[in-house]
Amino acid sequence: MIVAERKPIEEILGQVKQVRSVLVLGCNECVTVCEAGGKKEVGVLASALRMLFLQQGREVNVGERTLERQCDTEYLEEIRDMIDAFDAVVSLACGVGIQFTAERYPSKAVYPGVNTCFMGAALERGVWSERCQGCGSCILAATGAVCPITRCAKRLLNGPCGGSTAGKCEISKDVECAWQLIIDRLKALGRLEDYERLSPIKDWSTDRAGGPRKIIREDLRS
């Protein structure tokens, strides 16, 4: 999932200090699962904003709505009828949803209510960890399904650096060395010979190095 974190209320308040009405807009997908921008967080933020505005003596209409997704036009259309009642939107979706909402409603100020952090998984309740950087040409087949692009601080492709110590990365003793994980995994799979195989130079043009990316599938286009 895309993992995001709630922004401090103070920062959000700074964004909406001029508005007379604001819609707090949540998303039912990733940000709901990571408890940063679902219906519940929408309710909490809207309630907090209402109480803050009241104390400031401001009459601000704070609306609440949570869409199935903010990264699909059909769901964003669901607020077409209500959007005129608001000056601004605080979107609790990931950066994609925030931008897509703004693109769909160009006359509205759209502000981020979360910091979008990474693509990751929940290790346990309340703990998320990054797993993929969307490099566009996946090499997990060679690395026993442990991603060195994401989990190695140096994005190394052919074994660990000299800083790998007792399974930990040299950047922090709390970070596992990705290459140690890869070696352990390949060993467990009886595939250590894969470790000996040199990885070719990676095509970084499919990563961010190639500029903003876009996928066009003619077989699906209407």
Partner: peptide, 11 residues
């Protein structure tokens, strides 16, 4: 009891 229930009380 959720955070939201508590906040609603104050609201």
């Amino acid at each position: 009891v959720d955070v939201l229930h508590i906040l609603r009380c104050f609201e």
